[in-house]
Nucleic acid binder design. Structure first.
Lengths: 165, 165
DNA sequence: GATGCTTCGTTATGTTATAACATGGACGAG
DNA sequence: CTCGTCCATGTTATAACATAACGAAGCATC
């Protein structure tokens, strides 16, 4: 009874996603962390999702492989992936998206510092931006208050181009 | 058995807060909405709080006056105050702050569209900004994507001037 | 005083997140 | 080798946040 039954069913995700998982695994290895099976599966689910899944959506899907997965299972994986800069949490949705911030990014957690998200209220699509002007304006405004920025959450809700028909 | 027992104990909040409540009541009246007793009390509690209270903190405090207050009691009041632009929800904290956006603001819900919040992770203080440069940068970035902004959530975590000592 | 509207009370439940402690496996030091 | 340590995970329970659904009370208007 092998968990990996045959060559072709080893990879539960489409090739494009498997490729990104491979990249992610490599990136973790480089940093001395491990993209374990559970973490890899969760990342895969987030990459494969048509729209940003919540923790309990992921939990349900994860049970395909881990019948007894419980909330801590998923939250631990999400924490890890967030720390590694592989995913972002969208606060307004309590949902998670893959990080699209520079594909070759190798600085882990710092990825999350400066991103902006456009959330379409109709189709649910989330687009990640990395706009320097916004970052600069925000830095200036904070500095004017003597405030030292450690982490930003910039989430914009509205209508995406496609849904403005 | 009068709920209002004596002249001096009628006002449960400090004078400065009572004054703001009075203003708020007036503003609601002007708009054809009513700052009822419960709503007024919740707003007062938020104004009086040393740091942003969560819904259940407020609920507990509200029970001083309404022994049987339940979650819907507080959430309804919070929804109303948010719609009226009298408070803001800080998503990162699931907590609420008074709106400090132009004291004479009279355009209700629109208040919330464009504000930025600096959250000190040490003292918990939240400062509301209204920085045009940020708004402009964000508008441009959104426009470049064909995205129509309806609502923004900009929350920055870090250290306030006082806590950087 | 009937009608319609907003507000509020009440019960129940849904949703998101964490605490606390036990288990198991990898790996180096002795 | 086997002990201890570290990391990841399993497991149970509960905390924290939020809403659904329905009915009754207040009040403005006709």
């Amino acid at each position: 009874m092998d968990k990996h039954q045959s060559g072709t069913t080893d990879a539960p995700f489409p090739a494009a996603i498997e490729a990104r998982l491979e990249q992610a695994e490599q990136a973790c290895f480089t940093r001395g962390t491990r993209l374990t099976e559970t973490r890899r599966q969760v990342l895969g689910l987030i990459l494969a999702a048509p729209k940003p899944p919540g923790a309990y959506d992921l939990l349900e899907q994860l049970r395909v492989w881990h019948r007894n997965a419980a909330p801590p299972t998923i939250y631990r994986a999400l924490d890890f992936l967030t720390e590694q800069g592989l995913i972002h949490k969208i606060e307004r949705l309590s949902a998670f998206v893959p990080c699209t911030h520079r594909l070759n990014c190798d600085h882990g957690a710092e990825c999350g510092h400066r991103a902006q998200f456009l959330i379409c209220r109709v189709c649910g699509h989330v687009r990640e931006l990395e706009d320097l002007d916004i970052e600069i304006a925000l830095s200036r405004a904070a500095q004017a208050q003597g405030f030292r920025i450690e982490l930003t959450t910039i989430e914009v809700e509205g209508l995406c181009a496609a849904c403005r028909s």
